[in-house]
Design a protein around this nucleic acid. Structure first.
Lengths: 343, 343
DNA sequence: TACATTTGTTTAAACGTTTAAGCAAAGATA
DNA sequence: TATCTTTGCTTAAACGTTTAAACAAATGTA
């Protein structure tokens, strides 16, 4: 049955013949309330199954104790794990999080921000959609006077905190590894250039090739949406070249899986004929045949750092954000797909 | 810069020299307000960048326009897609959703419920954690007088709405298919028996075997957590049997992937020596080698139905829930891993 | 004893909105 | 003309909390 009347602070006050204010203070363990009263209040609260009305306290205090999280997709291991860690840190401090997904859509991202601001969140932790170029919707968050923390996919122009790995350096690690495997024609199926992290990976790839005096061939550098399907398509495109690559570095594990699939269908030996490297270290990467070399992005640390960065601002009653990057070193996990000489 | 003062309904009223009540009504397009006033209010609201304070209106109206969603994990395609569809339906009706994940933990699920009730959500759409046996925390939701809609993982004892596929029947479809492939010793790596859906799959498996007069061998029926790792382990356990199975039906695609891995490592021909079937139709299932036969759970429809069921209650000011199941027929997607005779 | 301080509470206003009730002015009815 | 209805607004209370200010009683101080 629905619509029971909820117990309020006043009900408790009536039972004990004290004021609502006293009850509120007792519940907040105010030192000016006697232990006797506190005990009585707690007891009655329990008996009446009192549940504080968050809306009322949030309205009065101006703090909702809610933090919004915006991610492109929840069904990636990286984002799922990051969210989990954000939650763990924030729950401990009495915050709850509202997760929203943009599905890589700019429009959805705008809607998400509106919804979160509408809910009066105390801050937002976000990773941007692929589609996003214009940043004015993020400006709304800053205008609302609440902290905005970005991670993985951020933009310098926002002038806020950012937590992520060094994508440029990660590309170097990958190319270095492939060169050490005697690869000479290394292709890159990258993400969209307009997304900063993918652009950095591309830059890192290009610069690393230069460093090793490898020719930079335009047909070896392809932009992709990084879905499984697109990974297949772009791999096929590479195989259609007259001068095929001997290594392919894919900027995402899902697309790498698609690429792997195509290679196997065509009986191309991995890593002997073509070595394959992914990015993101999804759980399936170590489970497919052959296991795919990938880059671990420390979702654990990133989530915790993002949450702690928010908390830093939340404690202050006034603050000013500026571009402040916290960059973690990524870890290249070498597996069979690129390892020609196992120990 | 932080902490700008926000524009309220009163600020608008002051500018126009009318009452706050008139502004509120104008914003809600109340027929008793003149068009002239409405236009003026809208104009001023825009100029002052007025954003309604959701907390205040929610407090006053008793409706937060927020719906809580609880899932075991967001990084599964099924749940991610379901959430997306729930969101789509609810957003259209002015609701926002708060996603929380239990990570299959009973404790976390309790915490999630507390957090959602604390946030004064207008209803909760939930799929239960594997660990959950005791249901008293869900009782809290009913006690709060808000609708509870369960999907995929529910329990009859809760006496609320449930939306899901027919797990029992799905097992029949799988066994029927495997029998048609001439399989005689069909194993089942199932989920935890205490979880209703997995129990139903197990029951369906057993009854289907009986129907086909196949022997029910206890060592062929294994309980698993259905992670990739556990899938590996349980597959190995089956391979260690003196009388190996000639088909394995795994109750989840992640575990099926682990099983596939082990089979391939040991050069067992799929599907000739052992046929493999998964459950859930994760995106990777059609991409691995060989592609895994699986069951599609209609996440699209389930999400929309769950959302619409909630809306049905939300519109009423009083309601009574009871066990009401909406069961969808699942779809068996036959792929190479179990298809001995392609067309 | 007289005054100051501490303790434990109450009163009342506030947070920003919604809404029932009231009311004056304008328009309709007869 | 007198009365009824409609229109367009205002007033004031309410939602459930928090909190500054006030205050009485108890305790401490000299």
């Amino acid at each position: 049955m629905a619509n029971k009347k909820k117990t309020t602070i006043k009900d408790i006050a009536n039972v004990l013949n004290i004021s609502a204010a006293a009850v509120s203070k007792a519940l907040h363990n105010n030192p000016r309330i006697s232990d006797k009263t506190k005990k009585a209040v707690l007891q009655v609260a329990q008996n009446l199954n009192y549940q504080p009305n968050h809306l009322a306290s949030a309205l009065r205090s101006g703090k909702s104790k809610l933090v919004g999280v915006i991610v492109p997709k929840t069904n990636s291991n990286f984002f799922s794990a990051t969210i989990h860690n954000i939650e763990e840190v924030l729950n401990e401090k009495g915050y709850n999080i509202i997760i929203t997904q943009s599905n890589e859509s700019y429009k959805k991202e705008c809607a998400n921000i509106d919804a979160l601001l509408f809910t009066q969140v105390d801050g937002i932790i976000a990773s941007m959609a692929n589609e996003t170029i214009d940043l004015s919707h993020f400006q709304k968050i800053k205008d609302a006077g609440i902290p905005l923390i970005t991670f993985d996919r951020g933009e310098n122009d926002l002038n806020v905190d950012y937590i992520g790995i060094d994508d440029y350096e990660s590309s170097h690690k990958i190319v270095n590894h492939l060169v050490a495997q005697d690869c000479k024609r290394i292709a890159h199926i990258g993400g969209f250039k307009r997304t900063r992290i993918y652009n950095n990976r591309i830059k890192g790839y290009i610069d690393a090739l230069k460093k090793h005096n490898l020719p930079l061939d335009n047909e070896l550098l392809i932009e992709s949406s990084l879905t499984i399907e697109d990974g297949r398509e772009k791999m096929q495109q590479l195989l259609n070249l007259t001068k095929k690559p001997d290594a392919v570095y894919v900027a995402g594990d899902y697309a790498a899986l698609g690429a792997l699939q195509v290679l196997k269908e065509q009986n191309i030996k991995i890593p002997e004929e073509i070595a394959l490297v992914g990015f993101g270290d999804e759980p399936f990467s170590k489970m497919v045949t052959p296991p795919i070399t990938s880059v671990n992005q420390h979702s654990y640390k990133i989530g915790r750092m993002a949450a702690n960065t928010f908390l830093k601002y939340a404690e202050k009653d006034t603050f000013k954000q500026s571009l402040h990057k916290q960059i973690l070193e990524s870890a290249l996990i070498i597996r069979e797909s690129s390892n020609k000489k196992p120990h």
